[in-house]
Amino acid sequence: MIRIDSVTKRFGRATAVDNVSLDIPAGDSVALWGVNGAGKTTLIRCVLGLYRFSGRIEVGGHDVGRRGKRARALIGYVPQELGFHDELGVAEAVRYFALLRGLRVRSAESVLDDVGLAGHGGKRVRELSGGMKQRLALAIAMLGNPPVLVLDEVTASLDACGRGEFVGLLSRLSGAGRTILFASHRIEEVTTLARRVVVLEAGRIGAQTDSETFAESLGLHSMLHLTIRESTRRLALEHLCASGFAARMNGVGLLVPVAREQKAAPFRVLAEARIAIDDFELIAADAAGAPAHTQEAQP
């Protein structure tokens, strides 16, 4: 369904996507995995025809560069963050994007109902929460039931609770038989949605595995993010390093790489040192042990 053939995209001197070839047959779902800057979003934008690139991408047999409109007609797209006119009404937005697809919406409410936005049709987009906006984007992406779904870090701007809910909605709505290409660095999304994982490293395809194998390999190393008050943060770092953890400061807390069977070990060390932990988060990391998204703030 999606055929990516030796695609290279450069920004000035930097090469964001380097000779990537990927074939996604109909019904397959592929996760693009990689650190920020690995080229996931760039590749997705190439597929959408937003960038000019060298190489060739076909969606449903339509060349993205030359017949982008036909290609995009097959794609439902959910971005990282919905870019809408804030003043646009929710139902109005649904109508507008339906019209662009040549669809006449009989009832925007029922479309919104499918993503749990029933009763919000009269609101303006700016009045929606982040999670609701993403659900609206999903509703729009599903308009006309397109055969391909392209998702670009769709949960990045959501909190943990919203993420779970959204991924659940996604997996329910996307249904069987749909081709899915998505960028993610959350293991739970990958395991829920993807059948196949393609790891991007510095714009190249590193490894391709099925998602279960990938999840297992990931489990070997995880990253623990601990939120600790500033007064005791440095002390905590010293204690952890003294106990053999490669901990480092990060924002309002510490990042601690942990082995698969020792995820709770840092808690014990800090409890002994009588240092309070306000919050923690377990972050998936790739097999090499590099944190997938070190920039992310704590919830």
Partner: peptide, 17 residues
């Protein structure tokens, strides 16, 4: 859901407008 989304819409045209 997918089915009801599809129902709320006219049938999908072969080509974009």
């Amino acid at each position: 859901h997918a089915a009801s989304t599809a129902r709320a819409l006219d049938t999908r045209p072969a080509r974009p407008p």
